[in-house]
Design a protein around this nucleic acid. Structure first.
Lengths: 166, 166
DNA sequence: CTGATTGCAAATGCTTTGCACGCCA
DNA sequence: TGGCGTGCAAAGCATTTGCAATCAG
């Protein structure tokens, strides 16, 4: 978590008359420790692995806090669980491409896409607030060679494949 | 529900060795009776209002069936409930603009957007499968005049506003 | 001190499932 | 008749919440 984020959170907490607690500090730090998206439960896992004294409820409450403060974005990756993205502060306009085979998520930005969306929104008589683009696709390599590097990587790291059913 | 859809469903049911039951028929018909998106519970409401003998469980099971058959699309409109879109068979490439104030959903298509997304996907080394674009915006009129026709309409028809918390 | 915060367990609410019965093919 | 489909109630599961104890300021 960079300084801008720290400052923003401090400001938010002060304005709200809230308190700084060790649990909050630790959870927030862990949320931004990696660039990867996470679910509530995954963040709670990080907390447990670090032997931090914070309950599941506090993790959920802190996530809600960060979302409200605009530091964390709730995004839809297609699963049934809510996913959070810690990278929107640095790249406010990025979009997501999800590999339907391995669930790997790739973030990308494109100014043309942004501009086009903006125009479309205005043409429809609206004022753009936020646009989220999710592209579901599969690797060329998977199709042609029968295996995709992301899939292999996902298997090696024993990563959870995308959830389809709750 | 047009003929193409009926045929497609018939085919799907036959291939799967499934049966045609009055409940299924009725639920499917109601699902495509209107162009509007619906949640599982809303579809169940329609069923009840028509005094059709079908339980909530059957409605859920039939929705799953339609999604699997590719006749219904599960889309993310930002609420916490799953939403289903019955219009993808006619317009496979449409996107959604959601008014953040009244929750009104507008469907739109744009070939430039499609093309651009397609190029982007390929450039990233992927093969496009499906792209869903959700734009969150608010009416110009709401900003300038303090009220938006959709909002008024939503209030008049006592429509549920977008769900924020479960 | 005072009230925000936490932890626990219970509650919520949507969705799924096990099972016995009924009905389509 | 065989076994898919249905209804009911119970189970699942992520998330939220009530409440008493605790802790920050």
């Amino acid at each position: 978590m960079d300084d801008a984020a720290t400052a923003k959170l401090d400001d938010f907490i002060r304005r709200k008359g809230m308190r700084r607690t060790p649990q909050r500090e630790a959870i927030v730090q862990l949320a931004f420790a990696e660039d990867e998206h996470f679910t509530s439960e995954e963040l709670f896992d990080r907390v447990r692995r670090k032997n931090i004294n914070a309950s599941r409820a506090t993790v959920y409450r802190t996530i809600a806090l960060l979302v409200e403060a605009g530091l964390l974005q709730e995004i839809d990756l297609g699963g049934d669980l809510k996913t959070y993205d810690p990278n929107f502060l640095d790249k406010p306009t990025h979009n997501h491409l999800v590999c339907v085979d391995c669930g790997k998520v790739i973030e990308f930005e494109d100014s043309h896409l942004e501009l086009l969306n903006d125009c479309l929104t205005r043409r429809l008589g609206f004022r753009p607030k936020r646009q989220s683009i999710k592209i579901e696709a599969c690797c060329e390599q998977l199709r042609t060679k029968g295996s995709c590097p992301s899939l292999i990587e996902a298997r090696l790291s024993r990563k959870r494949l995308p959830v389809r059913k709750r």
